[in-house]
Design a protein around this nucleic acid. Sequence first.
RNA 1: GCGGAGAUGGCAGAGUCCGGUCAAAUGCGCAGGGCUUAGGACCCUGUGCCCUAGUGGCUGCGGGGGUUCAAAUCCUCCUCUCCGCACCA
Length: 935
Amino acid sequence: MHDLDVKWQKKWAEEAVFQPKAGAVESPSAATARHLQRQVTRDKFYLTAAFPYPNSPQHIGHGRTYTTTDIYARYMRMHGRNVLFPMGFHVTGTPILAMAKRIEEKDEEILSIFEKVYGIPRAVSATLTEPRELVAYFSREIEAGMKEMGYSIDWRRKFYSYDAQFNKFIEWHFAKLEKAGHITKGEHPVPWCPVGQTAVGAHDTQGDADPQIEEITGVLFPFEDGMLACATYRPETIYGVTNLWVNPDATYVKVKCAGKHYYISKEAVAPLSMQLEMKVEKEMPASALLASKAKHPFTGAELPIFPATFVDPKHGTGVVMSVPAHAPFDYLALRDAKLEGKIKLIQVLTLEGFGNFPAKEIVEKMGIKSQNDPRAEAATEEIYKKEAHTGRMAVGEFTGMLGAEAKEKIRAKMIAEGSALALYEISNGPILSRYGGLVGVKIVRDQWFIDYGDEAWKEKARKCLAEMSILPEKTRHDYEYTISWLKQKACTRSAGLGTHFPLDKSKMIEALSDSTIYMAFYTVSHIAMKMKPEQLTEELFDYVFLGKGEGKGLPAEAKEMRREFEYWYPLDSRHSATDLVYNHLTFFIFNHVAVFPQKHWPRQTVTNGFVLMDGKKMSKSMGNIIPIRAAVKQFGADAIRFVVVSGADLSADTDFNRPAVEGVISRMRFMQSAMEKYASTADKGKHDIAYKWLLSRMHKRAIAAPKMYESFQLREISLELFYNTFNDVQWYLKRAEKPQLREFFEMWVPLIAPIVPHYAEEMWQALGKKHYVKEAALVAVAEMPKGDAKKVDETLEAAEDYILRVREDISSIMKLIKKEKAEKVELFVAAGWKRKLREIVDKERKFDIAMKAAMADAEIKPHASEVAKVLTSYMKNVGALAGTPSSEFEMEALLSGKKLLEEELGCPVSAVLEDESDVPKAKFALPGKPSIMIS
RNA sequence: GCGGAGAUGGCAGAGUCCGGUCAAAUGCGCAGGGCUUAGGACCCUGUGCCCUAGUGGCUGCGGGGGUUCAAAUCCUCCUCUCCGCACCA
């Protein structure tokens, strides 16, 4: 398999079939020139798939998107379009840096994954400590894998997103955004590692946990000369605060922050200082706080401070406000301290199914013993959940409002009047970063944004979307939703590979912001990459991409670049996995409409689901990843291409498993040997019924194929052009007296070529001179056969189905009567009156009315005794009545299948009309279902 | 919480829009047989339950209820699963 792949990949490369020229013909070898000539007189077709991120090799999961794209590219090429399918590498951002660092630190986990999963020897991975070395190595691997998969990519246009020329392009891109007013600056909370001094994403954390930022409220209670800060998720319960809690064993501090004094736990200082600048002035034991009292920020009422062990000094501020009516822990702590009678509970929310103090009730109902009882957690969860959904405010200015709504209002109000701080926290913490620090939340000043919240911009994006084709169509809603909620998107980071942010060179443009219009760069990259970066000025790109000016004073290459861009743009189809709809693909639309004129807006996106391995999600930790190159070596490119796209609908996840791959390979072999046996010469003589039937099916499929390819019904195609076709050929070989398959194969091979190109190429060559389809040196550039509607014969196909059904019925009866071998088989075809009765029932589906109508019919009346019985059997399946076959049809079909049946049964088979026979069994015949007599 | 998608046989997965030809395509798995020294591959047959000398009957498509001569398919309520909610490629 692999040799065959290499053979044709080499041939395609030699003939440069995947290196299209904008609007004119290059000079590939004479063999293909003719076909390329044909192509360029037709329309161009430009498509791209998301470029890979080379921080590790690719596995078969990655192969789905690229294979889908390639099938489409190959189909379009065979459909006569001049196709451009380029590829590059995305290296922007921090994961590559993180990976290189981990290798440098000899991270056992990563080295062992490389060794065990991808088969990279430790000696080799040890050399990948430099980001550029790493990129060079993995991009080489990925490119080799893509070539081995037979992707029809124009590699001349390859670039890396940190190349100086591409940097220039991104600078131009951002200059356009800035001029359009889409760049803003502000503050932003990010997950931050205090040790690494950097923002962290999932790939920077231990265990690949994705840190989630959550807003919390730091309520400030006047206390001595400052304020006690309490972090809470439920600021709306401020009305029900009866006291405060501190941990009796913790140390507390007095800090100065923006001119004010706050009291918090000592352990809260480090995480909170990422958000607020603070200076510790004094340290004190908890007892110092317990001796004093705080004041309620609204009412000024005195609030005692009590000790409670459930207070975690590491969490929030290390001080907790007590709302015993609604928080089980607060109630329990109060009860534990025997203070229940002394402190009066205050109701804040009304909750259906509960009285005034839900926390007290649930604690009593569940019989929870103390604040250290593990069930206290469950009780809290239940009450919080119920109150969050259905609780209504019972006190304060928002009385009657849902608690969830009141929360936002109260929080905003308190922050505005200075009685609370806006704080953030990592909701799924504690998370440790790879640098060893506990991840906290930092407020980044000088954060630059792309303002996707701009309504006018959104409108333009919607307009573009409305005119685009979205496949699968049901994804359109996801785009609309994403456009509606997108706000400011942070577009710079303090570290990473890529392009420096033009307005602040100390920052880097992050990865989702520098990959939105790079498809435009491909159209000129093969020229730009040979130029000096400083030649790629804003003026040049304005001319090339926006057609500004006449190109005077610009480098000589400018005109050619402009021509390439104008020829290839707009992008006809953009491909990726579905997860990118919510960010990349939507940004892609936004940025195109911001930078380019409407005629260059994208026309289509195609998104696909993932690949599962034996029904399970692929993951490095589970070790169920098959690297793409290893898979190709083992199974050959075509089988993998076939399996990753044919297993499921485009949007659904598909499964990759060995039996599926092997099934494909064995079927391909079968077809190949059938072709060798029966298609070596042109079909001879008059086609018999069986061959006419097979060709009818083939032509029908050829007619249906373009639509299926164009709407990415790849599962449907594989089913029709492969499994069902395969079954047809098997049936045909059984049916045909002298099988011949020449016309069949001349059509079949090009039809499947986009999916299994190497195999098809080999078959195409083996066929030699074509008799029934247009000749082409390579099937990759051959014309897709068009089915001939005149060769589609529904009657013939129906007859064949009929024979199959009769055959099945005979064998089921044989089994029923436990007969190994029959002496003879007699078939009786139903009488005319039964057909007439069927028509009556088809029109009138109520039993009694149909019965009356039947009895009024002179032809049917004589059979009155049988009518009720026949009618009953019709009624059972009223839907099956349409298209009653004629008795002539049935007789003819039986005659055509007679020989096959006799051979299979090893006895004479006869067919007569029901009314021409006096065998009693004959009466059981129904239209389409002859009565069978075996003796 | 908000938004989206989905639930079909041992498994994967069609069918659902436009109700009837649906015990339900196709593939895998499993069982029996053939081939083979054996295994693999390959080929045939079977694979919800029940009855049966006659091509049959019954149950069934997440759960409940409804519409209809007829429901996997239409309506309604419910349960459960998956995905996304950004600064991360």
